[in-house]
């Protein structure tokens, strides 16, 4: 191979990452839309109960920011799947590229999007409270959990970012599976279903899934939570990397 300057892998990854980040600015616009949708869903599907206190009827509406979080998690999954599609991966041909630089730049891109999505989801909880104040003007606000402490916001953003990263990595693996061959993509859920039916029924699979998610989600130490999340995300991404490692550049 002839070249004027020796290309460094990290320089290529950096250039690819910067280019993809700028090229996919629409992804951030969709994140804004998803954030607002999550807030609207949280306000719409708030739980409500009422009690009678003598002649006075009290109603208590409870609003949670879970919808904001899970809608954003879904966004992270979909965006990661899209990242493996041809339209997105063709951008790599703008640069000298191989499958390592392609996957590494995608990994950094996913991390960036996850941090942005996690921060948006955490701050969305505050915006939700602000919007609720005006959407329900006749309601008295219970002075609890209204103001989120800076620590709560930081931890919320960190935890949400980890959820986004996990969802992103799963989506990326799914996309790579589909890319590796439609047969494999078709067979994987069939194998899972067959395993569930033959190996003791769906309850075992459900229990297995719950123990895997519980392994991460029920962690009470922030450091361990981050370590477990990053480890799992790395493992899933490693699988996706292995799947595309032997494919030609044009098929990545």
């Amino acid at each position: 191979m002839m070249y004027l300057a020796k290309p460094s892998l990290w320089r290529i990854v950096k250039a690819q990452y910067a280019f993809k980040l700028k090229a996919h600015i629409g992804v951030f616009a969709s994140l804004v839309a998803v954030n607002l949708l999550g807030i609207a869903l949280s306000l719409s599907f708030s739980s409500q109960f009422g009690i009678s206190m003598g002649q006075i009827w009290l109603s208590m509406r409870s609003i949670s920011n879970e919808a904001v979080l899970w809608v954003t998690v879904l966004w992270a999954f979909v965006v990661a799947v899209l990242l493996t599609t041809k339209d997105y991966s063709d951008l790599d041909f703008t640069f000298v590229s191989n499958c390592i630089s392609h996957n590494l730049s995608n990994a950094v891109l996913l991390i960036t999007w996850s941090i942005a999505a996690g921060t948006f989801a955490a701050l969305g909880a505050v915006l939700l409270r602000l919007v609720a104040f005006f959407v329900f003007p006749d309601d008295a606000i219970v002075a609890q959990n209204v103001f989120l402490a800076p620590l709560e916001l930081v931890v919320g953003a960190a935890v949400s970012s980890m959820y986004m990263l996990l969802a992103g990595c799963i989506g990326y693996l799914g996309g790579k599976l589909m890319q590796a061959g439609s047969l494999l993509a078709l067979l994987t859920p069939l194998f899972a279903l067959a395993f569930a039916m033959l190996g003791g029924g769906g309850e075992d699979v459900l229990r297995g899934v719950q123990s895997i998610t519980g392994f991460i989600m029920h962690e009470t130490s922030l450091l361990l939570f981050v370590a477990k999340s990053l480890g799992t995300a790395g493992l899933i991404f490693g699988l996706a990397f292995l799947l595309s490692h032997d494919t030609e550049v044009k098929r990545q």
Binding site: R61, A125, A132, D138, A140, I141
Partner: peptide, 9 residues
């Protein structure tokens, strides 16, 4: 009387 309560983050 109507009340609005927020769940923890």
């Amino acid at each position: 009387a109507h009340f609005l309560r927020f769940s923890p983050d």
